[in-house]
């Protein structure tokens, strides 16, 4: 199970990578392993506003449907359109090609409040 050092995490198993004023969001390796083969991602629209802690999309596997919660607040400026045809990108590369959305941060300091690599590793180990 991979948990990259440079990312921030939530207890709901989303990750965030800050690139300037924008946060790229995805689900963790742990989350994709729990879900199994992902079959569908209900992509939100670009321009939609999200609020930290609120569900903004649903990821479906064959036998499960999981709400995905926004780690940060802001405006969705880009969605990973490739997921429409290839939702398995999340299984193959959860931290890379399997990213979900990019959010323009309403508050640039918000990601600082998220879990770091150590804290999330402990959480994921408990969950196994």
């Amino acid at each position: 199970m991979k948990i990259p050092k440079e990312l921030r995490y939530t207890k709901d198993h989303e990750w965030v990578r800050v690139e300037g004023t924008v946060a790229v969001v995805g689900i963790t390796d742990f989350a994709q392993l729990q879900l199994g083969d992902i079959v569908f991602v209900e992509l939100p629209g670009e321009g939609a506003m999200v609020k930290a802690g609120e569900s903004f999309t649903v990821i479906e596997s064959v036998k499960a449907a999981s709400d995905i919660y926004a780690p940060v607040s802001g405006k969705i400026v880009k969605v990973n359109a490739a997921l429409a045809d290839a939702p398995d990108l999340i299984n193959q590369d959860p931290y890379g090609d399997g990213w979900l959305v990019a959010v323009e941060l309403a508050d640039g300091s918000e990601p600082d409040g998220l879990l770091d690599n150590d804290a999330y590793t402990r959480l994921a180990e408990e969950g196994q």
Partner: peptide, 11 residues
């Protein structure tokens, strides 16, 4: 099946 009651339950 992810749409259905036995998976979505209260959602």
């Amino acid at each position: 099946q992810a749409r259905e009651q036995h998976i979505r339950r209260d959602k």
